[in-house]
Write a protein that binds this DNA or RNA. Structure first.
Lengths: 204, 204
DNA sequence: GTCTATATTATGATAGAC
DNA sequence: GTCTATCATAATATAGAC
């Protein structure tokens, strides 16, 4: 691996990082490639060079997020001997998911914004990454229903969005939470207490 | 009230309506005044005439939302004789809030996006409208804690965001829910079942 | 009250020098 | 692999005619 390759990867990584910041806070339409380039400390023409277009840069950001999410989540298996009962497993899964959003609020913000508008990007995201974010949610909710931990007569999609919304929003809304409630969702202690509140509320 | 005044109000109303649509789906930065004007069926120069700037148009949209929300919510009082016990009151309040978001998903989308980014708009929103959206949430959560319906040791802000996220997200994420799960959060029957699921999950 | 015309800036994209 | 220069378009905003 020569210097050229290392430089290339460093440039791409810094662009991807700045792009995630821009896209997640301003949305796709509000983000500008020049701002992204400025944030990455590179010339704006390099974005076109490395990623061809704004749309493809966005896809690269999303793909990287999903790749990283799977390993970062470290979701336990319900069969794990460490979990005495379904409730313990359910709560632990909620905790891990919540902690992931706490560490990656930009991921939450980007996903949330893309859920608001139908179009090519949403279609691509579902088409390309459904297996990685829909299936896991569905399996988890079904597990909870099977063991009577959530209302069994509730529609699947409703439960998915209730759990997702409850789990993500506090961390995604960090700037508002800080300014309005004087609480910082990036603070370790705040995270710990929030995660416990979540586990107790969602899996009583 | 002469024709001039009526025309003026009709123009402003159509601009406000189109602006809510734009701002809520693309965010402030992604929205363009020209698209708003096109959506309202008026010349784009009229936006400057009636609202001075994009920023002030946005403020007018937000102010109208908060005005309308208060009456539309029709929140019950805990002292109302119709509520036999705190649980019944808590669940009914959840239902009314959820139904409000079901009817006004654009409001939810706009608020959510503004929670993601600190800055002048967020500061103005909190400064100007705190009483109307923070205080009610706080009072409701305190009521639930007082009666042991939610974890009493949980931080106030955590509970506010858990309830808000759970209540809003399904409706705000309508386009994604439709495309990914084949469920339309604008459908009457879907709303009814979702609202019941929410009431059961949040106030067990 | 409404519209045309225009100033100014920002954006996505590209060609070509080094 | 990187940067300068440039294009075409779209944005906010404004001036001034009707």
């Amino acid at each position: 691996m020569n210097a050229r390759v290392r430089q290339r990867e460093a440039t791409q990584a810094s662009i991807l990082k700045a792009a995630l910041q821009e896209f997640s806070s301003k949305g796709f339409d509000g983000a500008s490639t020049r701002e992204i380039a400025a944030g990455a400390g590179v010339h704006h023409a390099l974005i076109k060079y490395h990623f061809k277009s704004k749309e493809l840069l966005w896809r690269a950001v999303v793909a990287e997020l999903f790749d990283q999410e799977m390993e970062a989540l470290e979701l336990p298996s319900p069969d794990d001997a460490a979990f005495a009962d379904p409730r313990t497993y359910g709560r632990e899964t909620i905790r891990r998911r919540a902690r992931y959003w706490a560490r990656n609020p930009e991921h939450a913000r980007l996903m949330v914004q893309e859920a608001f508008r139908d179009g090519d990007r949403l279609a691509w995201m579902i088409e390309e990454h459904r297996a990685r974010f829909g299936d896991a949610d569905e399996a988890f909710v079904r597990f909870l229903q099977t063991h009577g931990l959530v209302p069994v007569n509730a529609p699947l999609a409703s439960l998915v969005y209730i759990i997702l919304g409850a789990t993500q929003f506090f961390f995604a809304a960090g700037p508002q939470a800080k300014r309005m409630w004087g609480v910082d969702p990036a603070d370790r202690e705040v995270i710990d207490r929030h995660v416990e509140s979540l586990a107790q509320m969602l899996i009583p």
